[in-house]
Design a protein around this nucleic acid. Sequence first.
DNA 1: TTATTACTCAAGTGATTACTTGAATAGTAG
DNA 2: CTACTATTCAAGTAATCACTTGAGTAATAA
Lengths: 221, 221
Amino acid sequence: MSSGNFKHDLFSQFARVGKALSNGNRLELLEFIAQAERSVDELAQVAGLTMANTSQHLRVLKQAGLVTCRKEGLKVYYRLSGDDVLVLLDALRTTAERHLAEVKQLVQSYLTTRDELEPLARQELLDRARDGLVTVLDVRPEEEYAAGHVPGAINIPLQDLESHLADLDPKHEVVAYCRGPHCILAFDAVAKLRDKGFKAARLEDGFPEWRQAGMPVETTH
Amino acid sequence: MSSGNFKHDLFSQFARVGKALSNGNRLELLEFIAQAERSVDELAQVAGLTMANTSQHLRVLKQAGLVTCRKEGLKVYYRLSGDDVLVLLDALRTTAERHLAEVKQLVQSYLTTRDELEPLARQELLDRARDGLVTVLDVRPEEEYAAGHVPGAINIPLQDLESHLADLDPKHEVVAYCRGPHCILAFDAVAKLRDKGFKAARLEDGFPEWRQAGMPVETTH
DNA sequence: TTATTACTCAAGTGATTACTTGAATAGTAG
DNA sequence: CTACTATTCAAGTAATCACTTGAGTAATAA
């Protein structure tokens, strides 16, 4: 009978996945990997970690089965090992947001100082874009945009926004999006645009969620 | 601009939830709490931990926003803080099962030694039960059964199964279920029944998943 | 009142984790 | 071949974690 070992072993295995999610830097790496395949030094740079440290975090994620990697030339590219990992990350964010007062407050205070407009829902964005009422703005880096973006969206990475304001029609409302509901790129973009007199809003969440929801996706060939 | 702190703080908060999921004992407690409200010593007993240790684990789960508690008389009852926690646990299990060879192997070897029959899907169970073709057997303890069970299911806790075999119709197939896809009660029950010559199978997962899927639920008044 | 129960808190210990530093490996370029 | 780049490995340290022990706190019972 017993089976106490089976149970114990099983929960220990589940805990390995939990452990992989138990560190802020690893979660940041995961969110970044969720956008597209990433090399180790890209990841190290964006998360502000050393190569060695990043490599170790990636090893943990890999051993937990959350990411896989392939080697191409000198570089090693990491990606999520499946869509279920996106679901898991989303569940984690959702739970954190619903039950942790600290997260609510953090997002709240950031939103009110940066973005007084309510974020826009996905379907609403598609409708307004189809009617030519809004300009959809993808503020992610070029490679991410190329890997897949919201149909009709134009790509101006955040750091280029200031010098490309002329490309935008001041009469149209601008809807910015980036990597996810907690990616700060879109917040910053909206802040900058509103500062320059544009009417700007954020998409309710980011591109991975858009794709996940089964909305249409355009790629650059 | 900056906002590096916002991002960092946000991921740290998310990691708090991950940390809560990073220990096997805590996951076991969570799965047990997912069934119904539980007192601390019930939880300590089932997980084989000391009271103090259990209490500390529960504090971690509470601070991560995964459970809440209420005091009634001497006892403190813990429960999940929302359905989104069930979703999170399910995502964790799913990811672990899909990507961790160890889990696959563990479940596989356990299934093949204990349960040669394939588990039964939810809707299929309802259909067959409605037609009177199967006996649905809830092998969880009485209190859990009372808190909610599959309509028409009879309750025989695992330890009473041997002495209550006469209550079961040998002509009917028996479908057993318990707390979840990895709860060992149903495995053991099926093993015992098949040992006694019954035709027995497991429900594909357990009662929380049944409830979660919006299937009908019966309670004992 | 004292005793008992159910639980939490606090201090201590060994194990694990995150990160750093420096060396090792593998693939590419000259 | 050597030089260089991207990555991993290995060793060390400070911080954190899991668990134990023993004391402390409410709520109930005698």
